[in-house]
Design a protein around this nucleic acid. Sequence first.
DNA 1: CAAGATTGACCGCTCAATCTTC
DNA 2: GAAGATTGAGCGGTCAATCTTG
Lengths: 154, 154
Amino acid sequence: MEDPRWLTDEQQETWRKLVTVFTKLPAALDAQLQRDSSITHFGYVVLAALSETPGHRMRLSNLATLTNSSLSRLSHVMTRLEERGWVRRERDPHSRRSNVAILTPDGMAKVEECAPGHVLAVWSLVFEGLSQAETQRLDDVCTALIARLDPPGQ
Amino acid sequence: MEDPRWLTDEQQETWRKLVTVFTKLPAALDAQLQRDSSITHFGYVVLAALSETPGHRMRLSNLATLTNSSLSRLSHVMTRLEERGWVRRERDPHSRRSNVAILTPDGMAKVEECAPGHVLAVWSLVFEGLSQAETQRLDDVCTALIARLDPPGQ
DNA sequence: CAAGATTGACCGCTCAATCTTC
DNA sequence: GAAGATTGAGCGGTCAATCTTG
């Protein structure tokens, strides 16, 4: 666990599998949502995040953090979601340089329309095959990985 | 573990974490390779796969399967890698409708140039923080997920 | 100058259409 | 017609530049 110049055989094997997972899982999610609801997984994540928030509204910078995206990416997506009538933007009354994303009624309806198919996909791609103990292990592993990915030292 | 209509609270929480991982991990890998070596993670995967093969050559359809990509995606990437002189294509002598991807000497040099930085990134993003037991659990979890993602019933 | 946000150019991927070989 | 592969259009994302507010 000390020499970063190579990986052990076990680590290489595990790495290949992890790459397969993060290649295929997002592709499968996007494919389902695109096919059944004509929306990106990330677009859905944005709408879903707003739908769980009091007043269905949130500052863009906070929304970007919550959805693990850059402000630039979020802004582009907001533009597309706005064109479809699912969100709108408002100036934050408390700070003139902040903007707030707001879920429209149509947007809320869209989330509710997408959710069943998406949940089914998540369930059958991930959780159907996992026992409660395995789910807990998946959670632990993700927690450990996130600790490395979200630079704790800032 | 039976009703696909909703996820349990634990599953929802685990799902959020998993989404964070497969959002940030590929982004971090791409960022490192792009910054230090001006190559995509997927481009690197293609070159690395060829570098481990006898004769540094492989049929495109096999390479697509091995790298979890569509033939279309692979073909586009091959075009870009070819323009940079790292691979070339040849007609398969055994089957006139198959093509073979071949790693050039420059391509081999490119892999060797990229590898140290990439390995260091993988190590510090993933394995540095994991004990051997945790690595084994990560492997198990990935194996379980892949079983669902790679439709076994074809 | 930093934080919040937007914009445009460029690049990579997906999807459907197409071509060739079996 | 299916398998192997390529191509072009269109879309989503990144990066750097820009604008405004604090």
